[in-house]
């Protein structure tokens, strides 16, 4: 196995890790950095449970190798603290078992930052990237809209 020692910027902290070329970022942040918020689901890019933020955009961390992430700003669910989207998920009970929740929150958080004026079709387009086996979709949509509304300066 080929090893690389790389620097990753995770949740505003510089981390030095030694990774194999084929390690996914999901593997590295969970197993080496101990940040287990991003969840392994399908490992195939389909479910969104592993979603984190890379340079402000949502990213399925099973679709990225750790070696690709050098020089990028990585944010995981552990890097969020009392953000509007987290409060909205609690307020609207937007989860049941909670397995998909970090992925949905990271995607929703990026949406609020990148598209503060998102309309219904943009919200739908973004959220379609994540699957909730407990089918909390209605509550999740409410939470996202609530957080988007709170984020608007006018409201």
């Amino acid at each position: 196995m080929k090893l690389h020692t790389i620097h990753l910027n995770v949740n505003d902290e510089e981390q030095k890790v030694t990774v194999r070329s084929g390690d996914t970022l999901l593997y590295t942040i969970r197993e080496q950095l101990g940040l287990t918020g991003a969840k392994p689901g399908c490992l195939n890019g389909d479910c969104g449970a592993c979603t984190i933020q890379v340079d402000g955009w949502p990213m399925k961390s099973c679709l990225m190798m750790a070696v690709e992430a050098e020089g990028k700003q990585i944010t995981t669910i552990e890097g969020l603290n009392n953000t509007p989207i987290q409060e909205a998920f609690v307020h609207h009970f937007a989860f049941q078992c909670g397995y998909c929740t970090p992925g949905f929150i990271m995607n929703g958080h990026s949406l609020i930052q990148k598209k503060p004026d998102a309309d219904d079709s943009t919200i739908k387009e973004w959220l379609e990237s994540n699957i909730c086996r407990c089918t909390s979709y209605i509550e999740i949509e409410k939470a996202i809209k609530f957080a988007l509304g709170k984020n608007k300066p006018s409201s």
Binding site: K2, H4, S21, G22, D23, T24, E31, P40, L43
Partner: peptide, 20 residues
């Protein structure tokens, strides 16, 4: 879950990685 995750979240072969 965790053990299965460990096995499957990396590629099963080693390779040189270049970024020209």
């Amino acid at each position: 879950m965790e053990d299965k995750g460990r096995e499957s979240v990396m590629l099963p072969f080693g390779f040189d990685y270049y970024r020209p």
